[in-house]
């Protein structure tokens, strides 16, 4: 399971990097989303996986070997933050498109040089 997830993380990173190298801003943002999902999975995987019981405090009090819940809490926070950032970048892109009418990263030369 860990190996499968590791391969998935690698695939997501490579897809994200590929999308980052495109010229369109929207694809750039999608690439960022891919990479942030891959990173979230990486943090999630950092505690290892123990299949079986989900980590919830229920009525049963017997101590079973559970996955470390802290990375899951961290990932939850990271997902929330990532959500906010992605929404903001989309709004930024929308405004940029409305004012300039272009979606091409190579057109962004006004503030350089």
């Amino acid at each position: 399971m860990e190996i499968l997830l590791a391969i998935l993380i690698g695939l997501l990173y490579s897809a994200g990097v590929y999308l980052l190298l495109r010229r369109s801003i929207l694809k750039f943002i999608i690439g960022i989303i891919f990479m942030s999902n891959a990173t979230n999975l990486l943090v999630f995987l950092s505690a290892g996986i123990i299949p079986g019981k989900p980590v919830f405090i229920g009525q049963e009090t017997e101590t079973v070997l559970q996955t470390d819940p802290l990375p899951q809490a961290l990932v939850l926070t990271a997902i929330v933050i990532g959500f906010g950032i992605v929404v903001f970048t989309l709004a930024l892109k929308y405004k940029f498109f409305n004012t300039t009418g272009t979606d091409d990263l190579d057109q962004l030369k006004k503030t350089d040089s």
């Binding site: 960022i32 990479m35 990173t39 999630f44 990271a78 950032i85 930024l92 892109k93 962004l108």
Partner: peptide, 23 residues
């Protein structure tokens, strides 16, 4: 807006690196 996109691009990648290192 243009500067904002450039600022966003690299800084977002920076925070992804931060999160990965943390993991």
């Amino acid at each position: 807006l243009e500067g904002g996109i450039k600022y966003m691009a690299l800084n977002l990648i920076g925070s992804l690196f931060f999160l990965a290192g943390l993991g």
